[in-house]
Design a protein around this nucleic acid. Structure first.
Lengths: 148, 148
DNA sequence: CCATGCTTATTAGCTAAGCTAATTATCGTG
DNA sequence: CACGATAATTAGCTTAGCTAATAAGCATGG
């Protein structure tokens, strides 16, 4: 393997990383065998499983999507029985959305499938390479969350 | 910063990396100020700028998309005057697609905008962190291209 | 040498995701 | 308590993806 990447300029690094992220993201999106759910639906469902119950507005903000878009995504998830809406205890305008047991089940299934794919991809790497990726993942996650 | 990530299991690494990729990909997609082109349109255009001229079938395979989908993407690019179709010299069934000068211009503009965004994100990192990301980018790109 | 079958591209018709603008209902405040 | 702000939804648009069906050209076997 070529030993480039010592003291790379930020621009060159950005280009390289951007390309890698785009391609890996596409591959990851295509590793979606079970459940027939889209990326977004899974992401929303996973968020709900973590947070317990959120309002559509909160979900829209979390996904960086406009409220009407979230309404649609929720409608599809509700049709499939994966989420449920319940009234907000104190604010009549708001709605609380939570995952049903079936929804939570789908989340863990999907998560497993995605991880399996990435794990298979990572299996051929050396320990050193895996360590680099581990450190990189932390940095990338920090970057991705910035400005929230 | 926490010093995790020494000898991480592949599964844990996969989960972490997957999350980072998903989020960064979304952010990257939203850093799309100029030109009003979508991710796919840009990707196709960039591919054409690199390769010179390709058939719709080749483009569809490169983007991992079905031929009718590519037909639509090409139609929108052609409407905007960013690509042109020309007959294949030896095979009457095929079509050669290439970027127009305007298309090539858009490619470099878009690339610059995306790189600027990532560069800004990377600007706050230490030299060590940037080096880790540089090494990681190489590994990730290799993984993403695997199985082509 | 031509009929038949394969490949390429496109069209038609569907679903999902994203947007803005407009509606409806509720909240809170002056 | 009226009126402005906020939450959710509805309506209506574009883009992207799919499968199935068509149309046209290629290539080959009899």
């Amino acid at each position: 393997m070529a030993v480039v990447s010592k003291r790379m300029t930020p621009a060159a690094l950005a280009a390289m990383l951007g390309d890698a992220i785009t391609r890996l993201g596409r591959r990851q999106r295509q590793a979606r065998p079970v459940g027939e759910l889209t990326q977004n639906q899974i992401s929303v469902l996973a968020g709900l499983e973590l947070a317990g119950a959120l309002t559509p507005r909160e979900l829209a903000d979390a996904e960086r999507v406009q409220p009407p878009t979230m309404t649609k995504i929720l409608a599809r998830l509700e049709e499939r029985g994966l989420i449920q809406r319940s009234p907000h205890p104190t604010d009549g305008r708001q709605v609380l959305v939570s995952a049903t047991p079936a929804g939570r089940h789908v989340v863990v299934e999907q998560r497993r499938a995605k991880d399996e794919w990435l794990t298979r991809m990572l299996a051929d790497l050396t320990a050193d390479e895996r360590q680099i990726l581990g450190q990189a993942a932390e940095i990338l996650r920090r970057i991705a969350r910035e400005g929230d």
